[in-house]
């Protein structure tokens, strides 16, 4: 079977700056990929290509055997940004419902049911400014998933949250994805988060943005936060950290 997402010699320049250069990557269906690397390595740019928010300067990108633009038009993409993309004058429920209103997709998931499942049953009629950062981000993820897209793209979704909320959200996301499997790409700055969630961690190097290493993570799922207390987890984190340092020194 062909990979769910295929990047072939993907390059992108902004004027003189080579944001991405010759990226080759195959992502299998249902796989969870974490993109990690120093700032300016093009992680977000890579993600935005999959979302058809950017067009490549050269090379090819296929999502589900099609162009990102076509896949977007078929409403097969879900997106979670670092800052919650919620309309301030709409309640949690209305914000999640909006995804269905716009896409017109029919799914077995309902906004109300999803918010219940996300532990927000009592906050459906709250406005975003009345919710904590962690709650806002859960509404945001619900809004990104309610149309049940096969591809879920996340750009530092937990970057603005405190450490404890971040751990909770990581575990939470892992469980949600076990119930609703998706091909997922996560851009992150956190090695812990990457090891906790990913099947493979792709380490990017800057100037020009390129793949420097790929690390397999094969801890069984569901992964609970207790995993972090085990030495195997620590070793994996160390391995990724060393590779990141090599990038920095190169």
């Amino acid at each position: 079977m062909s990979p769910a997402i295929q990047l072939r010699q993907l390059s992108k320049s902004f004027g003189e700056i080579e944001a991405l250069k010759d990226i080759d990557l195959d992502i299998q269906e249902g796989e969870f990929i974490a993109l990690i690397g120093p700032s300016g390595c093009g992680k977000t740019t890579l993600l935005r290509h999959v979302l058809s928010l950017e067009t490549a300067s050269s090379g090819e990108i296929m999502v589900g055997g099609d162009t990102p633009e076509r896949v977007r038009r078929e409403n097969k993409l879900g997106i979670v940004f670092q800052r919650a993309a919620l309309v301030p004058s709409c309640t949690s429920l209305q914000n999640v419902q909006m995804t269905l209103d716009i896409t017109g997709v029919e799914t077995p998931l309902t906004p109300s049911g999803l918010l219940d499942e996300f532990g927000l049953g009592d906050f459906k009629d709250h406005y975003p400014h009345q919710l904590s950062g962690g709650m806002q981000q859960r509404v945001n993820i619900a809004a990104a998933m309610v149309h049940n897209p096969p591809f879920l793209m996340m750009d530092e979704p937990f970057g603005a949250l405190d450490e404890m909320t971040r751990e909770f959200m990581c575990e939470f996301l892992g469980e949600v994805l076990l119930d609703n499997p998706k091909t997922t790409v996560l851009v992150t700055h956190s090695i812990d988060e990457a090891v906790m969630l990913a099947d493979r961690i792709v380490i990017l190097a800057p100037r020009p943005g390129r793949i420097s290493a790929i690390v397999d993570v094969d801890f069984p799922r569901p992964r609970r936060r207790e995993l972090k207390t085990q030495s195997a987890f620590g070793e994996k984190v160390l391995e990724v950290r060393r590779l990141l340092y090599e990038v920095d020194e190169s």
């Binding site: 977007r72 038009r73 879900g78 940004f81 800052r83 919650a84 993309a85 716009i102 809004a143």
Partner: peptide, 19 residues
């Protein structure tokens, strides 16, 4: 961020304006 979300959801100009 909201405009990007709308774009990814394939919203038309009318929807983006009103929402």
């Amino acid at each position: 961020v909201l405009l990007d979300r709308m774009h990814v959801l394939n919203a038309n100009k009318w929807q983006i304006f009103w929402k």
